[in-house]
Simulated assay, not measured.
Amino acid sequence: MNSLEQVSGHEAELELQTPPWERWAVVVNPTKFDDMDALRTSFAVLCADHGWSEPRWYTTTAEDPGEGQTRQALTDGAGLVCPLGGDGTVRSVAAAMVDSGVPMGLLPGGTGNLLARNLKLPVDDLEAALIVALTGRDSAIDVGEVTWDQDAPAVFLVMAGMGLDAEMMAGVDEGLKRKVGWLAYALSGARALFRLGFAVRVRADAKRAVSQHARAVVVGNCGELAGGLQLMPDASVDDGRLDTVLASPNSIAGWLALGLNFVSARRRGHPSLVHLVSERVEVATREPIEAQLDGDAVGVRRRMTCTVRALALTVRLPAEA
């Protein structure tokens, strides 16, 4: 082999070894930040301090909350894409990254940061989250897919639901949410507790359908809510299954008992709580009911069909010690 061939081969080897963060992107929701220039400057300083290249920025819009921008970033050659916004931004970015093999790095930019909480990633420290995104290991997780009524399928990473949880999301005061965070959801949920439930029929896989009166039906890809509340403690983000909970307390006392069961270290179940595990679940209600997707209200629906796409999304987790 002559010297020219050796140089060319060495350059090709270096190109193959170029780490993904040399070509990485941030998909940002600008409504979550008061000063975008200051945000970009802080990223530039962090990258310079650690010897990293700066990202290419893609800004979401009301018309496109992140999916189109992510597809463009992948077309532009990004080897890592980081959503920076709320749970809706994370979901939109993930929708474009399913089955791509390109890792997603989670950066905290919203109130909930629900997927990051379930993956035990930093949710209150942007620098720590950025370090994980740029230096961590790749891991595959499941993605849920939901079809509402006759709508096109949509992905979810945490939970899809109908009833109380969706009423809580739909009724939250956005101004109060910006001021007090998740307390605004608690206040909205307290108001929703006094509403009537609904008749629902749930079928998990090919098992016999469950028909009952319920206050909430939640299908989860993972089980932890804000504040560390474990709605589905046995749910796992990489087990190839979905966990479904039907809650049907008929009084405030029933809700209190159910709440104590959720926070108890030795959960024994509760008569007003049904838990199902499956790869597919079909939910049908007698009348239109408020629905939510990863914490975002999507309006009233009558049917919800959820399936799991096993290990379809690659995410960045902390590097193993």
Rank of each mutant, 00 (worst) to 15 (best):
M1H: 08
E5V: 08
Q6I: 14
Q6C: 11
V7S: 09
H10I: 11
K32W: 01
K32P: 06
M36R: 11
R40C: 11
F43I: 09
A44K: 11
L46H: 11
A48P: 12
H50A: 15
E54W: 14
T60A: 13
A62K: 06
G68I: 03
G68R: 01
Q69M: 02
R71I: 04
S92M: 12
A95Y: 06
L107W: 00
L107V: 07
G110D: 02
L119I: 03
L121Q: 03
V132A: 07
L134Q: 01
T135V: 06
G136R: 12
R137S: 14
R137Y: 03
S139R: 09
S139A: 11
I141G: 04
A152V: 08
M162T: 01
L164S: 06
M169T: 11
E174F: 03
V180K: 01
Y185F: 14
A186M: 13
A190I: 07
R191M: 12
L193H: 01
D205C: 15
V219E: 00
V219S: 02
N221Y: 06
G227I: 13
P233V: 04
S236T: 07
T244M: 02
A247F: 11
S248N: 11
S251W: 13
G254N: 00
G254R: 07
N261D: 15
F262G: 10
R267M: 02
L276G: 02
S278W: 01
I289F: 04
Q292W: 02
D296H: 13
V298D: 07
V298A: 06
T307G: 15
L311V: 06
E320A: 04
